[in-house]
Amino acid sequence: MTSHQSAQTMKPATAAKKLGVYLEATPAEFQEGVVSRTELNALQADPPEWLLELRRNGPHPRPVVAAKLGISISGLARGGITDALTTEQIDALKRDLPEWLQKERATQAEVRKEAARIKEKNAARGDQGGQAGS
């Protein structure tokens, strides 16, 4: 029995997610094959032109669109955005700043503020916990 180790591979959808690109916009050979960990590392270290172009202009997957707009993925859905968007479309939304986007940004700001408050509260509780046993 040989102790030969096989290369770890992943589905194209997983690799696209790790690369932050929209799978349907990638080249056919990327979509149809499997991607090894070595190939993924190579794509990240020295991205080919198609990957640079996708990252620059899109279309971008929903997590990237949400991050670029400063809202949650759920906020995108509430705003009626269910498909990938190009950088140009994202920039247009930022310029036009529709009411739904303003509301979602405000909601996201509140969520971040609340998360920071809870983190501070837990940190303070942790400090007190250390003193309680003294």
Rank of each mutant, 00 (worst) to 15 (best):
L93D: 01
K18Q: 12
T107S: 06
T87E: 13
K68G: 01
V21Y: 00
G79V: 03
E114I: 08
A66N: 03
Y22T: 08
A115I: 13
G130L: 14
E88N: 04
R95L: 06
R125G: 05
P27I: 02
A132I: 15
G33F: 05
V111K: 13
W50R: 00
A42T: 07
Q131G: 01
E110A: 00
G80E: 00
R95A: 04
E99M: 04
D83P: 14
P47H: 01
Q31Y: 04
H4I: 08
L43M: 03
S3F: 12
R95Q: 10
L23K: 09
F30E: 02
K11Q: 09
H60R: 06
R55I: 06
P12E: 01
S3C: 15
R78P: 04
D127W: 10
A132V: 14
L93I: 07
R117L: 12
G79Y: 00
A115V: 12
A123V: 13
F30N: 04
Q5W: 11
V35A: 04
V35K: 11
M10P: 10
G58I: 07
L101F: 05
Q44R: 14
E120A: 05
A109M: 08
E53S: 09
A42V: 06
K121T: 10
A66D: 09
V21M: 02
P59Y: 02
D127E: 13
T9C: 08
A92Q: 09
A67M: 13
A116C: 05
W50D: 00
S74E: 15
A116L: 13
M10I: 07
K68P: 07
A15R: 10
K17T: 04
K18A: 05
L19P: 06
A66K: 07
T82V: 13
R125V: 14
T87Q: 11
L85A: 02
A77P: 14
V65T: 05
E49C: 10
T14S: 09
D127H: 09
P48Y: 03
I118R: 14
P48I: 02
G70F: 01
I90T: 02
T87D: 11
E24S: 12
K119A: 07
N57R: 12
G126N: 13
R62Q: 14
M1G: 15
K113C: 08
V65W: 05
I73H: 07
E39I: 11
A15S: 07
T38N: 09
D83Q: 13
H60C: 03
Q89A: 00
G79H: 01
T38A: 11
A13Y: 14
M1Q: 15
P47D: 01
Q128F: 10
L69N: 04
K68H: 07
Q108I: 00
G130V: 12
E99Y: 09
S134G: 12
A77Q: 09
P27F: 00
E53L: 08
R62N: 12
K68R: 09
W50F: 05
R105I: 05
E110W: 08
A45Q: 12
S72H: 08
L43E: 04
K11H: 12
L51G: 02
A67I: 15
